[in-house]
Computed example of a mutant assay.
Amino acid sequence: MALVKLEKVNQNSSWALWKIDEDFNHLVQQTRLHSDDLSELEDIHHPRKKLEWLSSRAALSTLLQAENYADFRIWKDEKGKPYLLDNSYHISLANSFPYGAAIIHRHQPVGIDIEKPSTKLLRVKHKFLNSSEAEEALDNLDKLCIYWAVKESLYKLYGRKQLSLKQNIKVGSPTNRPVLASILLEDQTTEFRLDTFLWDEFYVVFSHID
């Protein structure tokens, strides 16, 4: 078992971080997969991608066991967003080798992402940052990473493919705690707070919703 972190965000929400240190078979056992999940796993061909996929589900399994909810089924909606079949909790999953992360909430949609600062963000920053965000981040890899992870978290929370990271998600200063952000869509603005957790050079970013 390689649970790094399991923490309550508030009375309705918790998140967990899992580090892969098991072999494939042990990780499969840890995730308590159903046959439908195993079918999805078989469609993943790269061995490392299989482990990443399993690690986020191991984090989710640990969260739900802590809530005395061990028997669960994960499905995906028409947009590819994962959800529990009985809708007992809202969920979000993320992974970046060798870590997997998950968050749950009793009542509200949530989002989580995990990223490591990388020079690849310099090449694509124009695709996800608006002008004020780009001016704030410049070429600072940590700031770029937080911007990316915040936007990915809200993209997952929203769960619809037409959302533009650059045009529809606005993020305040990445050095603030919590990070303030908003989704702007159809003349409506929804505000969010997001927490950040730095571990082993990886940023975990997740929505903080009461």
Rank of each mutant, 00 (worst) to 15 (best):
T62H: 10
K125F: 01
S55M: 10
T62L: 05
F206K: 09
D195H: 04
V204W: 00
A181H: 03
I91N: 01
A59I: 09
W18T: 09
L184D: 11
N95W: 03
V4R: 14
D21G: 13
R32E: 03
F206V: 06
E136A: 07
Q108W: 06
D195L: 11
L38P: 12
D23F: 07
S153I: 01
R123C: 00
V205I: 15
A101Y: 01
A70Q: 12
K156F: 02
N12M: 04
L138V: 10
H208P: 00
I114D: 01
F72K: 13
N68P: 04
V171I: 10
K116D: 00
L54M: 08
L157K: 10
H208A: 14
I146R: 13
H208F: 03
E22P: 11
E191P: 02
L64S: 01
A134P: 00
L185G: 02
L41N: 14
K79W: 05
T62R: 13
S131F: 06
K156H: 01
L121E: 03
S96Q: 15
T119R: 12
H90M: 02
L122C: 06
Q30T: 13
I74H: 03
E78R: 14
P47D: 15
V205Q: 00
E201W: 08
L85P: 03
L54T: 07
N130M: 13
L163N: 10
L184S: 10
